[in-house]
Amino acid sequence: MLLLNGITGIHVDALPEVDSLQFKRLCYSLANYSNGKILSFEEPHASQNFYKIELGLHNESIFILLNCLYPFLAFASSVQYFKIEFIDHSLSNIVSGFNEGFRVLSAIETNQQFELDERTHNLLTENNLNEAEINEILYWKPKTVGDVIFNFWD
C-alpha cells in the first residue's frame, strides 16, 4: 500500500481534513443496521491522528478508526496507546453500501510489516511521505503500515 504524503498527520500543509460529521453518520448507520450502539467517540488530538468510535455489538465491542486527513477506515478489536489490533469485520463489507466516500483498509493492509532499512534509514515500504514524517518514523519505529496510518505520535 502506498503511504501518501501527510498520512501521519505530521507537518502537513494544504491537505483537507476528513469530514467527521459524515464519519459519525456512517457509524450511527452501521450501529442501527447491526442493532448495535455507539459507546464512545474520540476525535484526533495532539498525540492521536485518527478518529475512534467504539461500537457495541451484542456481546462484543469493535473500534472503527478514521485517519484525520485521508478517508481511510480500519476496524480493530482493541485500541490501546501504541497497540492497535487491526481486524477484518463483517461490517467492513457494509460500509460501501452506506457511503462510497471512505476506503476500508483490510487487516492484511494494516498489519503489513512496515519496512525500514536500519542501516541506511531508507524506507522500503512504498511511500510519498514528507521529510518530517520520515524523521518521525525513524524516531517511533512503527512495526506495521497500520501503525503509520493510525498513530499516537506527538
Rank of each mutant, 00 (worst) to 15 (best):
G6R: 01
E136G: 10
E109M: 02
P142V: 00
S29V: 01
I62G: 12
G36D: 11
E85D: 12
C27T: 02
L57M: 05
R25M: 08
H11K: 03
Y28G: 04
R119Y: 14
F63H: 13
W140Y: 12
D154K: 04
E136A: 12
A14N: 06
F152K: 01
K143A: 06
S78C: 15
I137R: 00
D19K: 10
L129V: 00
L116S: 04
S47D: 07
N127G: 05
S90Y: 12
Q22I: 10
R25A: 10
G146L: 04
W153P: 01
L65R: 04
G9N: 02
G36R: 11
E43W: 07
K24T: 04
A31W: 00
H11A: 08
E42R: 09
N35Q: 10
A46R: 06
F50M: 08
L2H: 10
K83L: 13
V79M: 10
S47H: 12
Q22P: 10
A132K: 08
F98K: 14
W140A: 12
V148Y: 00
I87G: 07
F75L: 10
L105P: 06
N111K: 03
L138F: 08
F50R: 02
T120C: 15
E17F: 04
E43C: 14
V148P: 03
L105D: 04
Y33Q: 11
D13P: 05
L129Y: 00
G56M: 07
S106L: 11
N151L: 03
L21A: 14
F152M: 05
N130D: 03
Y51G: 12
L21F: 14
I134A: 02
N128V: 01
L66N: 04
I64P: 09
M1V: 09
L116V: 06
F86Y: 09
E131P: 09
G101I: 08
I10M: 00
S29Y: 03
A76T: 08
G56S: 09
Y51A: 10
D154P: 05
V18R: 01
K83N: 13
K37W: 12
D13V: 02
S34G: 13
H58G: 08
S92Q: 14
N111I: 00
S106H: 07
F82W: 09
S47M: 10
E136L: 11
A31D: 06
E118V: 13
E17R: 04
F114Y: 02
N127C: 04
V79Q: 06
V79D: 05
L55R: 02
N49M: 08
Q48P: 11
I87L: 07
L123D: 01
I38G: 15
V12T: 01
I84Y: 01
A31V: 07
F50K: 04
H58R: 13
P16D: 07
V79Y: 07
L65H: 05
A107F: 06
S106P: 12
E136R: 07
H121K: 14
K24R: 12
F41G: 15
S34E: 10
I149L: 03
L2M: 14
C27P: 03
L2E: 09
Q80K: 12
S40C: 15
G6F: 03
A14C: 07
N67R: 07
T125F: 03
Q112T: 02
N5H: 09
S78G: 11
F41C: 13
S96R: 15
Q113M: 05
L57W: 02
E136P: 06
T120R: 15
I149S: 00
N99K: 14
V95D: 11
N35A: 14
L2Q: 11
R25V: 06
L65C: 09
N59P: 12
